[in-house]
């Protein structure tokens, strides 16, 4: 029997209305805005390709694009690699209680100010900062770490590492222990076991972790700006500069749409790879 129930709709409808109006609405408007035009410092609704031609026709846009790709890519590879032994330890080498506490600790930074943590890194990594001061006692350095790709990646990791460790730990916890033991008993060496048994079985979770890591890094403007020096700017910095320096919102919208399309393709490819049936 299908009757209209006030009770049912009270719980179902609010989020649909809210997200349509304030989530889908803004995103669609951004796509539309990339075709608007700015005249006399005022944005007018229109349908022209001018912003697209202007942005995509410029070298600095493509420099930014590939730089953002490169940084987010390096960031993802480094974060995934650094996280793996930690997640492996949490999944296989510690008790249930320790694992729960560790994940509790890893959740905390996710809800604390990213901005303040980046500022803190700025002071720690500076030429006369904590690390270089420490190294100078050993007669090393000083190393330039700010305004480098290294700085940017440290910043990205501040954002992504806890999340990636959590997701990897979940992925590895789902691996069937008896298969791992079987591999050992059959004389498989540890690294080979990881490569041939554990990685394939945890693939879905690991790829999802990598996709999240990439999306977060790709969209972050704080690390490349404050720790990476912003020369040349990444795409998110380009959005900030365009919006904050004037009325050229439509051009910022072009950058935003390019970012969304890129991330959509990456996420889609990731999901396809994650859920693909293993052949053979």
């Amino acid at each position: 029997m299908r009757t209209f129930s006030i009770f049912k709709q009270t719980f179902r409808l609010p989020i649909v209305l809210w997200q349509s109006l304030f989530f889908i609405g803004p995103l669609c408007f951004t796509v539309a805005m990339s075709f608007f035009i700015v005249r006399n410092y005022r944005m007018q609704e229109d349908f022209v390709m001018k912003n697209w031609a202007k942005m995509l026709g410029r070298d600095y846009f493509w420099d930014s694009y590939f730089l953002t790709w490169g940084l987010a890519g390096i960031g993802t590879i480094v974060t995934m690699t650094v996280a793996f032994p930690a997640a492996y330890t949490l999944a296989f080498k510690v008790s249930e209680t320790v694992r729960r506490w560790a994940i509790f600790m890893l959740i905390i930074p996710f809800f604390t100010s990213y901005l303040v943590r980046i500022f803190s890194w700025y002071v720690i990594l500076a030429e006369s900062g904590v690390i270089n001061a420490g190294l100078s006692y050993l007669g090393l350095g000083p190393f330039v770490m700010l305004n480098t790709k290294f700085g940017t990646v440290v910043g990205y990791m501040t954002l992504t590492l806890p999340l990636v460790i959590i997701l990897q730990t979940f992925a590895l916890s789902n691996v069937d222990r008896s298969l791992v033991e079987a591999a050992f008993n059959l004389g498989c060496r540890p690294f080979r076991t990881i490569y041939r048994v554990i990685l394939p079985m945890a693939r879905t979770g690991l790829i999802i972790a990598a996709v999240f890591c990439f999306i977060l890094s790709f969209g972050d403007f704080v690390s490349p700006y404050y720790l990476g020096g912003s020369k040349p700017p990444t795409l998110p910095i380009l959005i900030v500069d365009t919006v904050k320096s004037g009325q050229q919102w439509p051009r910022a919208a072009v950058v935003a749409v390019v970012m969304m399309v890129t991330l959509f393709v990456v996420a889609f490819a990731g999901i396809m790879a994650a859920y693909r049936r293993r052949v053979g």
Binding site: Q19, F23, F212, V240, L263
Partner: peptide, 24 residues
Amino acid sequence: IYLGLVLLPPTIPLIIMALAMLAW
């Protein structure tokens, strides 16, 4: 689709949401 509508926002980079919200 309903669940996608609800759960999707955190996967959109904040800077894009910021621009979209500002304009909207």
